Computed example of a mutant assay.
Amino acid sequence: MRDRRAGRRWAVIVGGAVAGIGVCVLAAVVILSGVGASGEKGSGQVVGSGASDTTPTAKGERAAVPDSCTIIGDDLINKLAPNSERNVADNYQGDDQQNQCVWGAYAGDRKRQLTIELRAIAGAADQSPTDAARKTFTTERTADESGKALLAGQKLRDKIRLEGIGDEGYIVYSVDDKQGSGEAVGNVRLGNVLVTIHYSGSNKGDPLPSRDATGGATEVAKAVVTALNQG
């Protein structure tokens, strides 16, 4: 699962470069700033506290997820990635159980990329959807917090655990000094749904600071979870 997610992130970056508008590497989740989450190196601090029709497989569980391109409002998108263009990742095989949307602003002094990915994790004969999602979440958190999921050139700078947003969540922040890019990757579990956010960018060639990147990812996570709870 981790290799597949990292591959998707790289594919989005390459797509931006081929389009001729990417002049720095802005990694996609994600993911993964604006609400004042601090980003002291190695802080490990805690921060934190929409939908289409779904058919629950159990209380609080989903068999499908809403459209990630419309799960949050344009006002938040414009705040975090002003003048960005929205694209459904063409190289991403989305369906009712998972989909991903990318907003990119690659020109000028303030480059930004925001990616939201929604996944409804299915269960197995001996495992409920929520248990399966919990296991996947733990595996991805271990990879992200250890730095194993980073792309070449990225260095892990911050690890943050989220509270009050979904059932459990975290954010990691990394920097690619050579490319002048800072990226926050956030992952939140709500029942059997995983919300993965990538928020990255640069300011006049300098990496997007941890405070801005992790704060923006936190704000997006809150908005997505609120929309899911209302759906």
Rank of each mutant, 00 (worst) to 15 (best):
residue 59 K to R: 14
residue 59 K to I: 04
residue 59 K to W: 10
residue 60 G to F: 11
residue 60 G to P: 03
residue 60 G to M: 08
residue 61 E to K: 10
residue 61 E to P: 00
residue 61 E to V: 09
residue 61 E to C: 13
residue 61 E to S: 12
residue 62 R to E: 06
residue 62 R to L: 09
residue 62 R to P: 00
residue 62 R to A: 14
residue 62 R to H: 14
residue 62 R to I: 04
residue 63 A to K: 11
residue 63 A to R: 12
residue 63 A to T: 10
residue 64 A to I: 03
residue 64 A to W: 08
residue 64 A to Q: 14
residue 65 V to H: 09
residue 65 V to P: 05
residue 65 V to N: 07
residue 65 V to G: 08
residue 66 P to M: 11
residue 66 P to D: 05
residue 66 P to T: 07
residue 66 P to L: 08
residue 66 P to G: 14
residue 67 D to G: 06
residue 67 D to W: 03
residue 67 D to I: 03
residue 67 D to N: 15
residue 68 S to W: 00
residue 68 S to M: 04
residue 69 C to A: 15
residue 69 C to S: 14
residue 69 C to V: 10
residue 70 T to D: 04
residue 70 T to V: 09
residue 71 I to S: 07
residue 71 I to M: 10
residue 71 I to Q: 06
residue 72 I to Y: 01
residue 73 G to T: 09
residue 73 G to I: 00
residue 73 G to W: 02
residue 74 D to G: 06
residue 74 D to F: 00
residue 74 D to C: 01
residue 75 D to M: 04
residue 75 D to L: 05
residue 75 D to Y: 05
residue 75 D to E: 14
residue 76 L to P: 02
residue 76 L to I: 06
residue 76 L to S: 05
residue 77 I to Q: 02
residue 77 I to V: 15
residue 77 I to D: 00
residue 77 I to W: 01
residue 77 I to M: 08
residue 78 N to I: 01
residue 78 N to R: 09
residue 78 N to D: 15
residue 78 N to H: 11
residue 78 N to G: 14
residue 79 K to M: 03
residue 79 K to E: 04
residue 79 K to Y: 01
residue 79 K to N: 05
residue 80 L to G: 04
residue 80 L to K: 07
residue 81 A to M: 03
residue 81 A to K: 02
residue 82 P to M: 05
residue 82 P to W: 06
residue 82 P to R: 06
residue 83 N to E: 09
residue 84 S to Q: 05
residue 85 E to P: 02
residue 85 E to Y: 07
residue 85 E to G: 11
residue 86 R to C: 00
residue 86 R to E: 04
residue 86 R to K: 15
residue 86 R to Q: 15
residue 86 R to W: 01
residue 88 V to C: 04
residue 88 V to N: 09
residue 88 V to W: 01
residue 88 V to R: 14
residue 90 D to K: 14
residue 90 D to S: 13
residue 90 D to M: 09
residue 91 N to Q: 12
residue 91 N to W: 09
residue 91 N to M: 10
residue 92 Y to P: 07
residue 92 Y to V: 12
residue 92 Y to S: 12
residue 92 Y to K: 09
residue 92 Y to N: 13
residue 92 Y to Q: 12
residue 92 Y to I: 10
residue 93 Q to N: 14
residue 93 Q to F: 08
residue 93 Q to P: 04
residue 93 Q to L: 09
residue 93 Q to E: 13
residue 94 G to T: 08
residue 94 G to R: 13
residue 96 D to N: 11
residue 96 D to F: 09
residue 97 Q to W: 06
residue 97 Q to D: 11
residue 97 Q to T: 13
residue 97 Q to K: 15
residue 98 Q to P: 06
residue 99 N to W: 04
residue 99 N to F: 06
residue 99 N to C: 12
residue 100 Q to L: 13
residue 100 Q to E: 14
residue 100 Q to S: 15
residue 101 C to P: 01
residue 101 C to A: 15
residue 101 C to I: 10
residue 101 C to T: 12
residue 101 C to S: 15
residue 101 C to L: 10
